[in-house]
Amino acid sequence: MSGFTTRFAPSPTGYLHRGHAFSALTAHQAALEAQGRFLLRVEDIDRTRSRPEFEASILEDLAWLGLTWEAPVRRQSEHMAHYAAALEQLAGRGVIYRCFRTRREVADAIASAPHGPMEAFTGAPLPADEEARRIAAGEGFAWRLSLSAAEAALGGFGDLWFLETGAGPAGEAGAIVARPQVGGDVVLARKDVGVAYHLAVVVDDALQGVTHVIRGHDLFEAAHVQRLLQALLQLPTPTYRHHGLLTGPDGRRYAKRDQAETLRALRERGVTAEDLRRDLGF
């Protein structure tokens, strides 16, 4: 077995569809060709939308497709201590801060930014006395990554890059200079939720020994901020391979709202796993 390790990491917030099948098959085939490892990770940190029945369906759908994976399956909800430790490490480096703005306030701040609504949000910690008062009052907050503090801690972002062996949305490939600025001061955790996507993914990939991240190019921009977190936490950087997204007859990419194209619905219509694999190019 080679040192190649990749993963498929769905969220149990709905049923899998054709697009998920394509991504899972792409990663699984890459692992087979490299004589490496294929892992399944359930990203269930969204406690309000994750459902046991969706997780059960994920396992059923992937087995129906003919995929195999190592046991046990890693469930993010069972590893919150790992994410808390990473957050504490970032706090120790002084690169995160409490943000008390609501989502609406953040959206308003972005809309009123000097360069227009496409600018990412950046903020700063509150004065110590005001922060203490709001914490004492029980106000909600998010832990945000401070781009300015992170840049200072690393002595700049110039040495940050990652290898792209697939292609980003605009055909980006090869050695990509990381641009963490595209995400702004991203949320890493919330008061009521122990961790957010970027931090959990970076920690999981490192702990699971993932060497190759294979996923849709809708997550290409995420690689930029994830590369920054890897540097701050002194974690290895995997090789990235982003692929195109499947679209339906209307030209829109498949989403969990497309109930007619879920794998469950396809099976009910008599589509076999062999039919679907062939249709997807496998």
Rank of each mutant, 00 (worst) to 15 (best):
residue 137 A to M: 02
residue 140 G to C: 12
residue 140 G to Y: 09
residue 140 G to S: 14
residue 140 G to A: 14
residue 141 F to K: 04
residue 142 A to G: 07
residue 142 A to K: 09
residue 145 L to S: 06
residue 146 S to M: 09
residue 148 S to P: 00
residue 151 E to G: 15
residue 151 E to R: 15
residue 153 A to N: 05
residue 154 L to R: 13
residue 156 G to M: 12
residue 157 F to N: 08
residue 157 F to S: 07
residue 158 G to Y: 09
residue 158 G to I: 03
residue 160 L to G: 01
residue 160 L to Q: 03
residue 161 W to F: 14
residue 162 F to M: 06
residue 164 E to H: 01
residue 164 E to P: 01
residue 164 E to S: 03
residue 164 E to Y: 02
residue 165 T to L: 10
residue 165 T to P: 00
residue 166 G to W: 04
residue 166 G to M: 06
residue 170 A to Q: 15
residue 171 G to R: 08
residue 173 A to W: 04
residue 174 G to N: 04
residue 174 G to S: 07
residue 175 A to K: 15
residue 175 A to P: 09
residue 176 I to D: 02
residue 179 R to M: 03
residue 179 R to V: 12
residue 181 Q to G: 13
residue 182 V to H: 01
residue 182 V to P: 01
residue 184 G to M: 12
residue 185 D to W: 11
residue 187 V to K: 01
residue 189 A to H: 08
residue 189 A to N: 05
residue 189 A to V: 02
residue 190 R to C: 06
residue 191 K to V: 00
residue 191 K to D: 03
residue 192 D to R: 14
residue 192 D to M: 12
residue 192 D to F: 13
residue 194 G to P: 12
residue 195 V to C: 11
residue 195 V to L: 05
residue 196 A to V: 09
residue 196 A to F: 15
residue 198 H to S: 02
residue 199 L to A: 07
residue 200 A to Q: 11
residue 201 V to P: 07
residue 202 V to Q: 08
residue 204 D to W: 02
residue 204 D to G: 10
residue 206 A to C: 11
residue 207 L to N: 12
residue 207 L to R: 15
residue 207 L to C: 12
residue 209 G to N: 11
residue 210 V to E: 05
residue 213 V to P: 00
residue 213 V to A: 12
residue 214 I to K: 10
residue 218 D to Y: 08
residue 218 D to V: 07
residue 220 F to W: 08
residue 221 E to Y: 05
residue 221 E to A: 14
residue 223 A to E: 04
residue 223 A to V: 06
residue 226 Q to P: 07
residue 227 R to C: 09
residue 229 L to V: 04
